[in-house]
Design a protein around this nucleic acid. Sequence first.
DNA 1: CGATTGCTTGATACCTCTCAACCCAGGTGG
DNA 2: CCACCTGGGTTGAGAGGTATCAAGCAATCG
Lengths: 235, 235
Amino acid sequence: MTQLALTIDRPTTMPPVRLGGSQWARDRAGGGFEPTSAVRAVGPVQYFTRDRDIYGEGEDAALFFKVVSGVVRTCKFRSDGRRQIDSFHFAGDLFGLEAGSEHSLCAEAVCDCAVVSYRRRGLETLAESDGALSRQIFSFAMRSLARSQKHALLLGCGTAVEKVAAFLVELAAAAPESTAIALAMTRQDIADYLGLTMETVSRTLSRFERDCLIELPTARQVWIKNLAALRNLGR
Amino acid sequence: MTQLALTIDRPTTMPPVRLGGSQWARDRAGGGFEPTSAVRAVGPVQYFTRDRDIYGEGEDAALFFKVVSGVVRTCKFRSDGRRQIDSFHFAGDLFGLEAGSEHSLCAEAVCDCAVVSYRRRGLETLAESDGALSRQIFSFAMRSLARSQKHALLLGCGTAVEKVAAFLVELAAAAPESTAIALAMTRQDIADYLGLTMETVSRTLSRFERDCLIELPTARQVWIKNLAALRNLGR
DNA sequence: CGATTGCTTGATACCTCTCAACCCAGGTGG
DNA sequence: CCACCTGGGTTGAGAGGTATCAAGCAATCG
């Protein structure tokens, strides 16, 4: 499949908008590039500090976004205050593209991060006449769907050990060349992503360290010591 | 949004293929109809008896399907034998449309059912030149995504009571005019959809009946007696 | 240095799973 | 017609895993 990319028409040290960026996978190889299909970025890069809202649930979804740097979470809040994180978005990932006119989730900065925004309408009108682009958009949507299904699978069948192991494997897959993972998110973030409590996540990580599957030099840094064993636990 | 439909070029007592059919919602109002965009059904209607495989995980995804009658489940099996149901598909729903070349889930007949199949390539080539159709496809994919996210939410935060209540509300939403629900699926199916055990589903339903939220004239028939209360429990 | 925040660890309670027995309806065959 | 069998469903008792509540620890920051 060709790697079609939307470019941003700015002096641009920014990466091109690649539809269907990494979704947790670092096929982040040099952006394919297609000068004929361009969607204008709306305004300059925007910066958000940790925990700042990027958009709220129910807000107008005229814009969608791309992570330039940092990590973004999309999540939902329940009446009782519990939070469920649907996904983490890393540099290169798109988020906030919706079928309806409103954002169905809210987006927040997990750590200090930078994003650029695009008009959905621009993308849609362009896709009308650009078959290849519309195919890319379809592919992006379907891969988002696959990711969500995988997440549902994770949440559905599983003990804490399975969930946390699968989470680590997911993160590790994002940087296959390295065994070191820097966690941008808190234990609470991980818990809300996995449908667990902070304490259970912490206990499970401690247990993995006791069992020599990982090492935790600091709370936010993980060294994978036995990926195969984690992968085994993860399902 | 216009209700574009793909038609089937057969003598046809069959409903047209509507992209983005019901997904659990019975906006099944008279099929919008667009004779210029047609995708040929591949072969005649196929019939499957209960528990029969329609396609398996990893099989070639050249075809996708539409439920004509009955109910289909798409699911995944784990190494330890546990099954996770991703979704139930009812009459009018499309399933099996993938981004990749293989089916990521398997599809099975929940009860005796009839489906028609379509070539993915046919849809893709048509979409290349038909902007409105490609928009429909995008919309379909995004609504599938929204459904999956909702499912993940359900699996993530929740007690058995919440899950089962939400499931019943989902089913009730599919037939808003009636308070009677016919369950095509077994308790085990429901359990695998909700990430619970059969026993817990059964106990929870019994409890709902004791609390006068529902009535169970037979195991496979549910009368909703207090939808508002269920809705409250469901989140 | 004290305060704050994120994290870890412990004790206990609660919910769900597991295992088991039993029930019930439908189908089959004598 | 009834005995029997089968598959799906219900219900109970006990075990186990995770949530809850609480205390303590470490790093960061004013």
